[in-house]
């Protein structure tokens, strides 16, 4: 049974790394862009400032890592939420394809978008 899925420990590693990334980075980012700027509690950065931050190679690399690992975190955890919460383990082929396929697609999209930043 175990030899059939040698990829499982790797998926768990990505899940774990993504959980750390989301826990470290998302509270501040979501608080600012999701709540504090829209409600006018704080002034959002002007365009040139934000572009300078985002276009720095280090920012792009960090954002790619954070986005990709967080998506694999979602994929792994959501897969088990569907298994346990809805008890639909018999659909595991399609659930795996949607979850991990979605994470791979999201990673490629993130890489493309961050590459395109001027």
């Amino acid at each position: 049974m175990y030899a059939r899925r040698p990829i499982e420990p790797l998926l768990w590693l990505f899940f774990s790394a993504g959980g750390v990334m989301a826990a470290l980075f998302f509270p501040a980012i979501l608080f600012l862009f999701g709540i504090a700027f829209p409600l006018g509690w704080l002034a959002p950065p002007n365009y040139d400032h934000l572009l300078a931050v985002v276009s720095h190679p280090l920012t792009r690399l960090v954002l790619l890592g954070v986005c990709s690992l967080s998506l694999f975190h979602w994929a792994h955890r959501f897969r088990y939420t569907l298994y346990d919460g809805l008890q639909i383990k018999h659909l595991n082929e399609s659930i795996n394809a949607i979850c991990y396929g979605g994470a791979v697609l999201g990673t490629l999209t993130a890489a493309y978008l961050l590459w395109k930043v001027p």
């Binding site: 862009f33 954002l63 959501f78 939420t81």
Partner: peptide, 29 residues
């Protein structure tokens, strides 16, 4: 366990922001 859905949402939201910023100041606004 459901928090993972919102983790995925933040990634999408962040990427929409990155796409807007890399287009133009108008798109950022």
């Amino acid at each position: 366990e459901l928090s993972s859905i919102f983790v995925a949402w933040v990634v999408i939201y962040l990427l929409v922001l990155v796409a807007a910023v890399s287009k133009s100041a108008v798109r950022y606004q």
